[in-house]
Write a protein that binds this DNA or RNA. Structure first.
Lengths: 196, 196
DNA sequence: TCATAACGAAACGGAACGTTTCGTTATGGA
DNA sequence: TCCATAACGAAACGTTCCGTTTCGTTATGA
């Protein structure tokens, strides 16, 4: 099976061993990819990485902390630069994001993160105040450009952003990324619609 | 504290004891209300209800199954009858739903359910194929009426529905029901916007 | 040279899982 | 009236995971 020979990564002295960090992140990725959130335990990651649990807890506060670093490490260079058409910008960005979620363990990582935040108040706080704002910078940029062009009113950006986020969450949380692909353009047109 | 004297609900013969069922559902409600999803364990519910765990597992397959019955039992008679204005109908329904989620343990139950579905494939399947369709009947009715009036195109109903669901999920999952209240009307106007 | 600190392994106590075993209780068909 | 049937609560089972502690080993860097 997936049984590599024992990795043998002893201490390299009084400092963090990058090989251990990499092995733990890789193991977390692999566990999420193969078992999903159900099988994602610190014990499982530790076993798979051939690392001691104290080594994990030394560098990561909890599961959510590890999940966020896994997600950050996976996150490809998905960028969004505004053109002149908000609806098209959003649709392009969304398509890229969804294929990122489908083509890597990231979709499962993201779902695990949202689930984790439902039982861990600290995780929810970090998600809301750090993780989400960071991830939404580009999308906010698209909306800001549309506001600057006068396409949408500034006061409605939060409502539209909530619609955008929720649309993505609904599809990823119900594991309907493939099925929902076709509805992206229509949804984005509504989110980007000029005020009447 | 909340320590009632031992309830003493022995068997009433070779049939289900309704008192036990009620006690278990009430205990599940209470645990969710006081501890949230983090404290929601079968052991905790069992202890609180003064019921044996086998009694729980005899009648409910798993946690998700119990959660769904709790939610169903809580679900007040929130109804949606279409008027002539889809945006207003959606806004009214959403406001009622959110105050239901805030004023009862239902918001937490719902969050627990979504979280549970991320680790249990069976729970996700039931959520997608039974729970959600049931819950969305009324909202679908609102959209259907708008389609019948010619206000929105029939082909866009799924996209708009996804936007609607996601908007609610985003706010409940991030525990931002109160903060987001003001953005409901704007969001619903976008979801209900006529095709251009 | 040597205090320092990270490493993996192993074990800890505690909690929850889902199941089994048990003695008790009452039903409903024979 | 008798008795097979089945639900009840209590307790305990073995397993898994939690987050932590202890331990001997390894190599740094002052």
């Amino acid at each position: 099976m997936t049984a590599e020979p024992p990795p043998r990564r002893a201490s390299i002295g009084a400092r963090r061993n990058p090989a251990s960090q990499a092995a733990i992140l890789a193991a977390a990725r692999a566990v999420l990819a193969e078992e999903g959130y159900a099988g994602f335990s610190i014990d499982a990651v530790s076993r798979r990485a051939g690392a001691g649990k104290p080594t994990i807890y030394r560098w990561w506060k909890n599961r959510a902390d590890l999940l966020m670093e896994v997600y950050a490490a996976e996150k490809a260079g998905i960028r969004a630069v505004p053109s002149e058409d908000l609806a098209r910008d959003l649709a392009d960005y969304t398509a890229a994001l969804w294929s990122f979620w489908c083509g890597t363990p990231s979709g499962r990582t993201f779902r695990a993160l949202l689930a984790e935040a439902q039982s861990d108040p600290d995780a929810l706080a970090v998600l809301r105040e750090k993780f989400l704002p960071d991830r939404l910078q580009d999308v906010r940029g698209l909306f800001a450009a549309a506001v600057a062009r006068g396409d949408i009113p500034a006061g409605e950006v939060e409502a539209r952003l909530a619609l955008y986020i929720g649309f993505n969450w609904f599809h990823v949380l119900t594991d309907q990324l493939d099925i929902g692909l076709a509805s992206i353009p229509a949804a984005m047109r509504l989110i980007a619609a000029p005020a009447r």
